[in-house]
Design a binder for these strands. Sequence first.
DNA 1: GATTCCTATCTAATCGTTTCAAACCAGGAA
DNA 2: TTCCTGGTTTGAAACGATTAGATAGGAATC
Lengths: 375, 375
Amino acid sequence: MCIIKSINYKFDPGSWLPAKMKKRISIHDIARELNLSATTISFVLNGKAEEKKISEDVRRKVSDYIKKVGYQPNMIAKSLRTGKTRVIGMLVEDLSDPFFSGISRGIETIAYDHKYKIFFASTENDTEKTKALIKVFRERQVDGYIMAPPCGVEDEISALMEDNVPVILFDRYLPSLNTNTVIIDNFSGSYQAVKHLQENGFSNIALITLNSEQTQMHARLQGYSKAIEESGFQPVVQKLPCKLSHQAGAEMVREFIKQHDKVDAIIFATNYLAISGLQAIRDLGLAIPGNIAVVGFDDNTHFNLFTPSITAVAQPTEEIAQEVVHQLLNALSNERESKKRRMVMLPVKLIVRDSSFPKVIKKIVHSQPSTMKTS
Amino acid sequence: MCIIKSINYKFDPGSWLPAKMKKRISIHDIARELNLSATTISFVLNGKAEEKKISEDVRRKVSDYIKKVGYQPNMIAKSLRTGKTRVIGMLVEDLSDPFFSGISRGIETIAYDHKYKIFFASTENDTEKTKALIKVFRERQVDGYIMAPPCGVEDEISALMEDNVPVILFDRYLPSLNTNTVIIDNFSGSYQAVKHLQENGFSNIALITLNSEQTQMHARLQGYSKAIEESGFQPVVQKLPCKLSHQAGAEMVREFIKQHDKVDAIIFATNYLAISGLQAIRDLGLAIPGNIAVVGFDDNTHFNLFTPSITAVAQPTEEIAQEVVHQLLNALSNERESKKRRMVMLPVKLIVRDSSFPKVIKKIVHSQPSTMKTS
DNA sequence: GATTCCTATCTAATCGTTTCAAACCAGGAA
DNA sequence: TTCCTGGTTTGAAACGATTAGATAGGAATC
C-alpha cells in the first residue's frame, strides 16, 4: 500500500494581504464608469437595444467596455429577479449505470446548447432520498425536472405540476399521474426476445427480473408472459431484490440456475442483472448458448465483445435523450404548450448475437458473427 | 420503425384561470403572519437562535409555523446575499465514460451529504468548450471547481485561483500551474504492466496510446518506456488521435497489428482504447493471449467477464472521489487551508487476469481463474 | 404658442434573503 | 426621576440584476 502522498507546501507568500478580493464588477459599476444608467446597460446586454432604441453610439460604447473589462453578469441576481434559473434538475437511478450515464450525457449536450445547466443526482431508487432531492431542487428554483422516478413520489410530482413546473418522466412513469413521459416499448422488447429464442429452438425460457413495481419492469414481465403463454410453455420468473451488489446478484442467479436445470435460456430484465447473470453462468462453467442461452435488456458497448457475443434488447438512448429535452424545452418556452401532456413510446431493437442461437445446429461456425435484426 | 407516438391530449380543463400561481411564501410573509420581523425568522431558520438569544417562545412559534406551511427558503436569494451558492462545478472529459461517471457518482454522493450540489459537464477534451463552460460556471457563481482539464485552460484556472475560488484537478494536471491535484501513479501502472508481461514470457510489447500531451498519458508512456528500456527490448508505441469513434479506433488498431506481426502483447493506455483494441483483435480472429496478450488501463466491471478475462491497471476510483471532495471541502470551509496547495498521488493496482499469461506454458487449466496481485 | 409624439435615457421598485446597527424594554443603581 | 445594562427584537441597507413607468428634449402638428 504505497501511498506517495501529501507533497505539501505553502503557496503564494503574499496572498493573505488585507483580503483584497477584487470585487466583481457589476452592472452599476459599468453604468457609473460610462455615465449611463444600469437600465441602459441591461438593455444592451440583453439584446433589447433595438427594441428600446438605444443609440448606436451608446451601444458600441457599452459593448466595447464590457468586452474590455471582461464583465460577467451575475446569474444569481438575474435569477432572483426573473424567477428563472435556466437550470434543470435531473434525477436518475444511478449516474454510474451506463444506461443512465449515456442518457444523461445526451441530455447534457442538448441542454447546454440551449443554455440550460443541469443538476444531476442519483436517487438509488430510494423514495425518501428522492423526496429530499426534489426538495433541494425546489429550494434552488430549478426551472424543470427530468426524472426516472422511484415509486412513492407521486405527491411531490403532483405538487410540482400544480405549481406549473414542467416535469418529464422517462424510462418509467407513475400510472396514477398524468405527466409528460418518454418510455420505450418494454412489452415488445421482452416479447420479441422470447419469440426469438423460441424460433431458435429454446423452449424453457426464464425471466430474471427485479422485485419492483416500476412500470418498465412490469411491462417487461408482461411481454415475457404474453409470449410464453402464446407458446403453451410454462413461465419461469425469478424476481431478485432491487438493491443487490454485483456479487450477491451473481450468487442468486447461480442458485436459480442450479435449481432450475430444465431452463435452457434466460432473459435478464436489466443490464446489471445480465452482468451478474453472465458472472454466474461463467462461475458455473456453463456454455452459452450450448447449455444456456442469454438475452439482455439494454444493449451495452461491450456485449458484442463478449465470447460469445450477447443478444440484447437495445434502447434508443440517443432518441430518448432528444425526446426528453425536446418535451422539456417545449414546456419551458411555451406557456400554452406546458399545459399539454404527452406520452411518447419509442421502439426497441432486438440485437441478435451469438448468445441466443442456434440451439440445435451444433458446432457450425456461422460466417456472420454479429447479425442485426430489427423489430 | 413502429413509432407509437404522441398520445396527445389536453389536461386540466380549468387550470388557466386568472393565472393564480400561488406565490411562494417568503420569510416576510412568515414575519407578517407571526408579528415578528424577518430578521428574527432568519435567525431561527439559520440556527442562530441561541447566539442571538431568541426566546424559547418565539423559537417554537417560528419553527412550528414554518413546518405547518412547508416553507422552503429561496436559495437563490440566499446566494445573492451571501455570495455562496453551495454549488460545485465539475468538468470531466465525458460523463458517459465509465471511469468518469464512476468518479462523478462518488463525488456526487459525498458532496450531497455536505449539502453541496453539482453542475456536471463534459469537456470532450476541447479547450474552447472548456473555457466556455468555466465562463458559464463563473456566471453562476459556483463555489468551487473539480476538473479533469484539457490542455490550454491554464489562464482561466489561474484567474480562478487569483480570485480565491478553490480548484481541484484530478486524473491529470497542468504542469505550469500550482494547483490542488489528485492523480494516480500512472508511471508505475504501465511500468508494472510491462514487467508483468515480460515475466510471463512476452517480449515484444507495444503501447497503444493517445496522441495527447496530457500528463496522465505522458506518465503512462514514460512508465512503459522506462520498463522497456530496462529490458533491452525495443519500444513500439502507436499514438492514435484523441477524438476517435469506437469503429475508427478498432480500424486503426487492426492496421497496427497487421503491420507489426512481431508484437506479442499490447498495453492499451485508456479503457476505450482497450475496447477498440479488443474489437480489432476479435475482428482479426486472433487468440488472446495465444497470439497476442492484452493489458488495459482503467479496470472495467466487465473485464473479468470477457473470455479470456482482461488484465488491467485499476484506478482506485472510490479513493480518488473521496480525496478530491475532501480537498475541496477543506478549501471551501477554511480560509487559511484554501491557500495551501497539495498534490496527492494514489497507487494503482495491476489486476492480473487471463489475457496476459502465460505465454509459454500451453493448455494448462489454471485452477484460480482470476488472481489478484497487488502492487 | 401650446399640444402631441418620439426618441433616448433614467429613477426607483422589486426579487428573498442576511446582517449591521439601532431600538426597545425591564429592572436595578444612582 | 434619570441612567445604565443586558437580553430581545427590529429597521433598513445591502446583494446585482430586470423592468414598469417617468422624464427630458426636440420635432411635428395644429
